[in-house]
Amino acid sequence: MKPWNNKAWLLVLPTLVLVAFSAVIPLMTVVNYSVQDTFGGNRFFWAGTEWYEQILNSDRFWAALWRSLLFSGIILAIEIPLGVFIALHMPRKGVWLSVCLVLMALPLLIPWNVVGTIWQVFGRVDIGLLGRAMAELGVNYNYVNNVGDAWVTLVVMDVWHWTSLVALLAYAGLVSIPDAYYQAAEIDGASRWAVFRHIQLPKMKRVLLIAVLLRFMDSFMIYTEPFVVTGGGPGNATTFLSIDLVKMALGQFDLGPAAAMSIIYFLIILLLSWVFYAVMTRHDQE
């Protein structure tokens, strides 16, 4: 009979405990809140599916959802190709490689609220370098009261903050390709595009999947940077789902509707992440 080694259970136990306390128990609590109403004092009143119906029929929720989806779409459309482009043009060895890696890693080391503050000041028309420069150039730029300017500022800020993550991941994928592939392509007289299309892109697929998933989830859940830069404005133009959720939960203390919105938000992230995963791994399996 095959002996069972139960040591593996002990090894995964710390992770299970961590996940239970950081994810499972809070999620269960949110589910419990989503079907009840509370006015504080740990007293709850059964509300059933009322909050879900309220959220699903709320224009405010759908508007915030579309804004979040649009923001994530723009971010992925810019950061993934740009990151791959940068990775393709990074030096493969020497001192410039180290310089590149350090420069790439710098934005990733800055805390999110600091990034928001940097861009909030940078874009200000009265004292910010960007805002003043735009004014000097005759461009009517003001992210405080112009919707387009607010969106451009947030997108550029996110691209500045996170493209290097995509570039570093793509670079890791590129350096793992053995030289033999390039030599074979050279013998076959493959063009630069053919090398990219048939060697580099397929070999980067795994890391790009991680990059797409990370960037999608992060951009879809973005809170701190837009909150610091625009506060969700002008009006509600940059009020993404996360900002709307915090307004509802902490600003209005509507914990039941906020919990129902959290569950719907979580399910959308889960579904879209699975779709990305399925689409990107389908080709590998064929």
């Binding site: 599916t49 879900y52 119906e53 699903l56 029929n57 719907i264 399910l267 889960l270 579904l271 699975w274 399925a278 791994t281 389908r282 399996q285 064929e286």
Partner: peptide, 28 residues
């Protein structure tokens, strides 16, 4: 039919996720 290799766990995940969206769509 999706052209993906799925295990029993994947199929349970898809069933539960789909059930959640069916319930939400029904409510809405």
């Amino acid at each position: 039919i999706l052209g993906l290799e799925t295990t029993r766990g994947d199929r349970l995940f898809l069933s539960l996720l789909g059930a959640a969206f069916i319930h939400l769509a029904w409510l809405g």
